[in-house]
Write a protein that binds this DNA or RNA. Sequence first.
DNA 1: ATAGGCTTCTTGACCGGTACAGTAACCACT
DNA 2: AGTGGTTACTGTACCGGTCAAGAAGCCTAT
Lengths: 342, 342
Amino acid sequence: MSDTGLDMAKVTLQSVADEVGVSRMTVSNAFSRPDQLSKDLRERILATAEKLGYSGPDPAARALARGRTGSVGLLLNGPLSEAFEDDVSAEFVAAVADELTRRGLALTVLTPPQGDGFLPARDVAVDGALVYTCDPASAGVAWLERRKLPVVAVDQDLGRSVTTIGVNDRGGARVGAQHLLDLGHRRIGVLALTEQFALDPPNRDRLLGWRETLAEHGVEPVVARTPLLPRSAALAAATELLESSDVTAVLCFDDVFARAVITAATALGRSVPGDLSVVGYDDSRVATAGVPALTTVRQDVTTKGHLAAGALADLLAGRAASSHTLPTELVVRDSTGPVPAP
Amino acid sequence: MSDTGLDMAKVTLQSVADEVGVSRMTVSNAFSRPDQLSKDLRERILATAEKLGYSGPDPAARALARGRTGSVGLLLNGPLSEAFEDDVSAEFVAAVADELTRRGLALTVLTPPQGDGFLPARDVAVDGALVYTCDPASAGVAWLERRKLPVVAVDQDLGRSVTTIGVNDRGGARVGAQHLLDLGHRRIGVLALTEQFALDPPNRDRLLGWRETLAEHGVEPVVARTPLLPRSAALAAATELLESSDVTAVLCFDDVFARAVITAATALGRSVPGDLSVVGYDDSRVATAGVPALTTVRQDVTTKGHLAAGALADLLAGRAASSHTLPTELVVRDSTGPVPAP
DNA sequence: ATAGGCTTCTTGACCGGTACAGTAACCACT
DNA sequence: AGTGGTTACTGTACCGGTCAAGAAGCCTAT
């Protein structure tokens, strides 16, 4: 009988229904399907719910009954810090989140497990997932498949039947390499990710694009490798590359690496682009944030995120989703120039 | 009878139980409480589950039955892009996610609503939430309270009873201002966020710290304001500030703004720190990424994230969680110097 | 009058698990 | 042989909703 709104007993649909004197279903409709009852009654129900401190249908219960949670997962493999410390990843995640919000979905980050038996990719309720920068053979991907969740792969190949959003990395790498060749460079270095990323599609494709284009002109690049983090590693690798070889130009896996090469070159007394040409990749913020502005291969990460999120949303809505390969484009700025005279 | 593992009928605990010939509860225990049954039977159950393509207890159902989802929300207010385009926010999110992972929790991003009736803060199942950079009067915060979810506030005040993780921004601003005063500066500019952020605790506290310290020495700062995004806005505001006043030093809301001030000064032919001293805030990546390295007020964003996530995890585990105010520290580098001779 | 067609609300089954309180069997001890 | 303590499993009652079909009332067309 009491209805102070202060009773600590949990407030459910039923309690609101009892208070108003209607069936539970009618209260449910008041919240979820307004067109199913009279405006008048609906307002009475909502008012009573407010009075009782009922905050609307319990999301967990609703998720079970409806079969969807309203949230999609983003599967990442490295420690999260990696994904967010990198500008490009961060931009991608932001774009995904924005687009999902627009579609009425929330984003849940699915990290690799750590220690105990909790495995997000298996244990968190989501309606579908985006797979980004993951080892295709990872446990996470396997669980998603096992759960038969709709999946969209980004920058990686999960098999023919999976919708994939990618970038023409190989083509982008090709034009970057060609640009250096056109400038007359023949002793060319490459700063790629460590072997651990040998199968990472961006790393693989860029390396492939560079190699094949250079090979067409009989050039065999000097390959240096460095991990994505810590950032200091790239500088060391760049320094070592410049000291141990006589390259006149360097193709870099990304813009951050390119900056590291420039920093290393400067420290060694070599100017860019006077003594050394450097080509970045991504056209991220750092490309234009420093001096000289980087010649780089642009990819539209925000569009990639929008497309990926949109494709997954379509899949969830029962619509067909198509794969896309986004174009890349060489942006010539101030970090490349003609090969220096001997 | 068929058990090819290919039947498309949904595989549930019950179907596995029937196949093995035990009760549903026993199968549940095989997955969730291994100590409740014999090793032998458990293995038989797991094997059968594997054969049937059962991927473990359905997360949504489990969430309803157990009353927890294994995921916590992160409530943000701006469009997501803002949170991730900013290095400091991104670092915070990364730290939160890492710590949550360590604690066996996933992270769900709760964005403000957009258009239709879907409101993440109300409609997504989470066990608790972190409130970051939000208007305390926003709908999101109100819903979390209404749902009676455990909440930890970061860099903001949600009331005495809410566990809060903050930093000593006011004190940090004070030492920044004092540093300039000690160098002899008396005509000092301030580059803060627009009025729209008047109540944003970091912005308010920093402004307060600057103002009161300067006032103690009879200095009234020239205040310029600019939004966080787009980035170009800060440059324009900085240029305007330098052109319309004769300040010899500028205190900036963050390091990105400080870089903008330096860029503007350079464009106007003024050198830093020769003609102009600039103090940043945060000690983020950009503080040391360019030339000159910034004198700035350091805050440990990663620790802030770890603490916030840890506090929330504690709350969820039924442990008490305590509020913290992290220290700030002045880091003197190359962007500040003595006041120039007249 | 009667059939058909809304609108508005109700009924009963079901979503796929987990908690908790048994029950039965086995063992050791006195 | 009786008592008490384990271990291993089962039965029942929820968790808090939604779905689909049905019933009651009223209006309109024939």
